[in-house]
């Protein structure tokens, strides 16, 4: 009996060792290329970095960089707030949009594969450098203006907005909603992966559930909220986190842009490090708090 136990421990030990061997590239890479630079940049954020020819010397200055970021720099606070606000509004919009599209794509109709392929296309095409270039392409906006003028300026959203403004109800909220609708292109190209994730979730719901519900007299609308929504709610969390991460790392992000100009153009390594640490911590906090709130409402079937 005792011998057997020993043997088991030996097997477990062997497995543990081979497990470590398998993940060793990650451990090495993590220590060398992540922990060390992170620690260094954290240290640099408390320093003023003096650059000389062929040398590089951080001088400890305490919280000066952070003070500069929050108290002196005119843009940073407002930029951070606007980006966070934008992130919140757009993430919500992306969630709603991708859930809606996934619901549609989950139905049977001709050409479904084609439509799905088109919706996924932006994941491939608008990545990396292309987003940043798209942003300041004034020719395209010129063309859009021309087209809008030639259609004699009929803008449905503008008319609606006008109507609602005169009705004077919840102006702030409506303005946000209209902003999102006007930028529906951005929302559509950012929700490729989210659509696929929701779609995969929808496909795992067994149809017998819907059948049972409809026999019991449940309308489609009710079964959407009582069956579909709870069943994909765990994916809601995944998608939310993914959306935020994706959003805060895009190169057209104002804060990211500011950090890279501080770093590359102005060569203020210390200040740039401080900015990026603030940004990083804020995003982590944001992800943590929102996903905690969402995970309260998530329903796990099994």
């Amino acid at each position: 009996m005792k011998k057997q136990k020993n043997k088991l421990a030996g097997l477990q030990k062997r497995k543990a060792i081979s497990g470590y061997l398998f993940i060793s590239p990650f451990i090495i890479g993590f220590l060398v290329f992540m922990v060390k630079p992170l620690a260094q940049s954290l240290y640099m954020s408390f320093c003023e970095v003096l650059l000389g020819p062929g040398q590089f010397e951080p001088v400890y200055k305490g919280l000066a960089n952070y003070k500069q970021a929050f108290l002196v720099d005119p843009d940073f606070n407002s930029m951070l707030l606007t980006e966070l606000g934008r992130m919140f509004v757009y993430s919500l919009a992306i969630m709603v949009f991708s859930f809606f599209v996934a619901l549609i794509l989950n139905q049977e109709f001709k050409g479904r594969a084609l439509v799905r392929a088109i919706f996924f296309l932006p994941v491939i095409l608008s990545s990396g450098v292309i987003i940043g270039l798209e942003e300041n392409n004034s020719l395209m906006s010129q063309l859009a203006d021309t087209i809008e003028m030639s259609t004699s300026g009929v803008s449905v959203t503008a008319v609606l907005e006008e109507l609602l403004r005169t009705a004077n109800v919840g102006i702030k909220v409506f303005e946000k909603v209209f902003e999102v609708i006007d930028n529906i292109y951005d929302v559509a190209i950012m929700s490729g992966i989210q659509i696929i994730i929701f779609l995969s979730g929808l496909q795992t719901i067994s149809s017998s559930m819907y059948e049972a519900a409809s026999i019991e007299g449940c309308t489609k609308w009710e079964s959407l909220w009582k069956i579909t929504f709870p069943m994909v709610s765990s994916l809601l969390l995944v998608n939310w986190v993914y959306t935020i991460i994706d959003f805060c790392m895009r190169t057209d992000n104002q804060v990211i842009k500011k950090i890279s100009t501080e770093m590359v153009t102005k060569q203020q390594y210390g200040f740039a490090s401080a900015l990026s640490w603030v940004y990083f911590l804020v995003v982590i906090l944001y992800v943590g708090i929102t996903s905690l709130i969402i995970s309260k409402g998530v329903y796990y079937y099994d």
Partner: peptide, 14 residues
């Protein structure tokens, strides 16, 4: 989660 911009300058020096 870590944005690569956070560590880019120290990687640069590294």
């Amino acid at each position: 989660l870590v944005p690569p911009q956070t560590i880019s300058n120290s990687l640069h020096l590294h």
